[in-house]
């Protein structure tokens, strides 16, 4: 029976493979933003003065604050991963929650910042904006698209953290299982549980065709397998969060600082 249990388990643990997959995914994210950075570079080249003027409308203080928030959140993310690697699950949860809150704080600032711009009539397609020069229209267009896509990534990162939280707090493990393919030969047979004297304390109905899995599930424990799988998930989520951070590191000067 151990054999079959191994059979379902063996697929999962290849930390190197998981990391390769994640890095490849991060490449695709870089290229996704890369297209936008390319557009930014070309339009900055075509309208340097307008971009300068547009940038002076942005609030450098809020931008800097958000930069600090995101950088700090990267630190707490690293700490969370490091704690989990040392099997300090509770501290890992604490830092994960902190990271989540910092992400939320970032989005809150973004919300106020955007609302202020929109209340001044600076949003795509508005009459105020369209009466300005081409360069400014493009600057604010790119501002909303790029910081918007970045904010979407922050949001996705936070959803990922909620999943991590669920994985790391789950205390239930499947330690052995009979796969459906093997169950066939036990059809019509019964399962029972016996105590140390061999008395049957519980007996199942005969196994019919509708039974698809027989498993032993243990409550209240965290197995080593479970922990290993979580470490991989945390590391990969951490990589993603740092990517989101790095993209912001480039967005901040390109939009907020070029007028200074």
């Amino acid at each position: 029976m151990n054999h079959t249990a191994e059979l379902i388990m063996e697929k999962h643990h290849d930390p190197v493979g998981a990391r390769i997959g994640m890095w490849l995914f991060l490449f695709t994210e870089l290229l996704l933003f890369g297209g936008l950075f390319l557009l930014y570079a070309i339009y900055l080249h075509n309208h340097p003065e307008d971009f300068h003027y547009g940038s002076s409308h942005l609030n450098q203080f809020v931008g800097a604050l958000n930069t600090i928030i995101l950088l700090t959140s990267s630190l707490t993310m690293v700490l969370s991963v490091a704690m989990l690697q040392r099997r300090k699950e509770n501290l890992a949860v604490l830092f994960l929650v902190l990271t989540f809150l910092l992400g939320a704080f970032f989005l809150l600032n973004k919300y106020f910042e955007w609302s202020a711009k929109i209340s001044h009539g600076l949003y795509p397609g508005s009459d105020v904006l369209l009466s300005r020069s081409y360069g400014e229209v493009l600057f604010f267009g790119l501002y909303y698209v790029m910081t918007g896509l970045h904010a979407l990534h922050v949001l996705i990162g936070m959803v990922v953290m909620l999943f991590l939280l669920r994985f790391v707090t789950k205390k239930r493990a499947k330690v052995a299982a009979l796969l459906p393919a093997d169950l066939e030969q036990f059809q019509g047979k019964r399962l029972y549980l016996a105590d140390e004297q061999g008395r049957r304390i519980w007996e199942s109905e005969p196994l019919g065709d509708s039974v698809r899995e027989v498993a032993v599930v243990v409550d209240g424990v965290r197995t080593k397998e479970h922990w290993k799988a979580n470490v991989i998930k945390f590391e990969n989520a951490g990589l993603y969060w740092h990517l989101v951070d790095i993209i912001w590191i480039f967005l901040f000067p390109l939009f907020y600082l070029i007028a200074m």
């Binding site: 290229l31 996704l32 297209g35 397609g125 267009g141 909303y144 698209v145």
Partner: peptide, 20 residues
């Protein structure tokens, strides 16, 4: 991904009229 962002920008143009 380059196609992804390009097509996404078409949607953004159609919905918001950014002008890129």
């Amino acid at each position: 991904p380059i196609l992804g962002i390009t097509l996404a920008l078409i949607v953004v143009e159609r919905v918001l009229g950014v002008g890129i």
